[in-house]
Amino acid sequence: MTKRAALELETLTVAYGSACVLSDVSLRVAEGELVALLGRNGAGKTTLLRTVMGLHKPVAGRVLLGGEDVTSLPASSRASLGIGYVPQGRGIFPHLTVWENLTIAYAAVRGRGRNPDPRMIQFVFELFPAIYQLRHRKGGFLSGGEQQQLAIARALLTEPKLLLLDEPTEGIQPSVVQDIAQALCHIGRTLNIAIMLVEQFLDFAWSIADRFYVLQRGRLVAEGETEKDAPQSVAHLLSV
């Protein structure tokens, strides 16, 4: 029972000048699947997500979204085709209100030539009630956990088929980490959105992901399923 692919990368190579950051990376994320991307600092995880989003141009290889080649499209078009992005550092606009931070994401839906689905904003506020309370506050005044929730909520309002998350637990207190893990599982199940998650913590990754990939110095060195493989099997690839 192979599900259709939400995202496929074919022999993707990315370089900054002459320094190769990703070489020959091929991977696949199926519809509704939650995939963790693991690796040490500087392994190329963030670059991989940015390249999928369209914020970096690959030197070679292809990015396919739902079977469609999007390699030459700018990020705004990819957002309209259904990629939601939560970057490292969360990317909240500090001088915009929470409400403005959310509604800017309607640009992606309007790019599809239709209006935003009102059920989505209802879903988002039910998932993160705190965000609704804070809607008139400036984004810059929110705590780390609140900003993370806002960033995920905002990415959902682009009505994505694929959600990219870059270290959603970074710098967030443990109790909120649990909330975010639950929210991500809920999103994946109810909306059937594929999720690709960059993570440093193995426990967190194993608690929510279906499958994992490990990057080392820009190459994929391991992949597997979280139910079959133990976290210890990849620990030596991640320890510093």
Binding site: G54, G91, A105, A108
Partner: peptide
């Protein structure tokens, strides 16, 4: 970058 990633045609 973030605006572009949310679909704004910068």
């Amino acid at each position: 970058d973030m605006a572009e990633a949310l679909g704004v045609r910068t």
